[in-house]
Design a protein around this nucleic acid. Sequence first.
DNA 1: GCAAAAGTGTTAACGTTACACCCATGA
DNA 2: TCATGGGTGTAACGTTAACACTTTTGC
Lengths: 230, 230
Amino acid sequence: MSHNIKEIIKNLSVDCVIFGFERGCMEVLLIRRAINPQKGMWALPGGFIKKEEQVLDAAQRVLKVTTGVDDRYLEEVGIFDRIDRYPLWRVFTIAHFALISPKHYALVPGIDTSEVRWFKLSDLPELVFDHQEIIDRALVRLRSRIRTRPIGFELLSKKFTLPQLQRLYEEILGHEIDKRNFRKKVLKLNLLKKLKEVHKTKKGRSAALFMFDTVNYNKLKEDGFIFELS
Amino acid sequence: MSHNIKEIIKNLSVDCVIFGFERGCMEVLLIRRAINPQKGMWALPGGFIKKEEQVLDAAQRVLKVTTGVDDRYLEEVGIFDRIDRYPLWRVFTIAHFALISPKHYALVPGIDTSEVRWFKLSDLPELVFDHQEIIDRALVRLRSRIRTRPIGFELLSKKFTLPQLQRLYEEILGHEIDKRNFRKKVLKLNLLKKLKEVHKTKKGRSAALFMFDTVNYNKLKEDGFIFELS
DNA sequence: GCAAAAGTGTTAACGTTACACCCATGA
DNA sequence: TCATGGGTGTAACGTTAACACTTTTGC
């Protein structure tokens, strides 16, 4: 056993599906590999777990290196374990998904990475290993979570409008929602504080800006809720 | 890299929280360790993953060795990764939960095991490592799953009565349910076929026996449903 | 003033909850 | 015949679903 805290565990990695939301579309943050195997191809940000590190800390480290942020919503999705998923030796990876608000963070290619950028979920490039499968499962998880936890908000700026929030839910859930029913339901959660500011859109009427009521927000995050709308 | 298919991966194990239901109580299957560390103490059935094995296969192997059955409901709960959770070296374990019907299976102590037996969930012995924590999280998962998948049935015999099913739900959810509302809701799922047989109880009126309608059962397992009753 | 997007209430259908008595069986 | 547990229906309530017009704003 080494006591070098930096030493990595060669058969255990983490990968992060980092979701963002811009201009009405879900996006995923991908990196371009600068090393072999599969040098030059697009992949999920990830890395090996260190000898003295916990899994979630490793995922947080990857998130920090890729986006410069920590302390965002991050959740374990599950283990991916196909025997030949990594070509050089056997690697189990623990997939996570994270929600961040794209505008706010400067992307910096990490070590072993030549490029970082957002891709629309509907327009992903070919990915290395089993990373497409990981994204698919993360998305299933996200869709399920958004119906019982108020995590959708993590994808928006601190101040946001109800039409933005609605488009986010429509995009993730994959179907349209009635505007009046949506507003009724969201406002009844006692989660939002209406601000005096408005958000000017290019065309049409300006939309009122909202923020969370942090107290109720954290309570709801713990307790969960049911969000179902046809 | 060895090509010995039996060789184990020393830092990755699986543990199974095997739930059962007898006489109105949830039970968990535990084994007594016949080897060190913690020889003689009670633990979850588990084992190291083999070099050429997938995680779920390892969990299924553990289930088979412990209970003699395969092909029961088995689901990944998550990874447990505290750095010192295993005293000899670093071991990550992937926790699973399984649902089986206790009566049906002969328990055979596996290798490295001196004893296997069911414990009431409300009366567990002291457990090794972080196994109590694993059970707690598996239970949270089970409670959540039972509200969206018809997995409760996996804990009962092929033929069962509605009062049995209701007590199962009450036990898992932790609160009482109105008998009439429960029956209405369950029967409306179109999941059960009423048999002509009855189950004789020691006292009182006999209860009608039911089985699944397999077709609707599998459909509901895939689609999910919402089961909420106060 | 017109195009574009924001904002606003009511009703009908449905699902959930609460609630009390009769029935079959074994001792 | 009585004690025990199984089996049944209805009304009030709350939630969800469907639906169309007015308001604000920039050009």
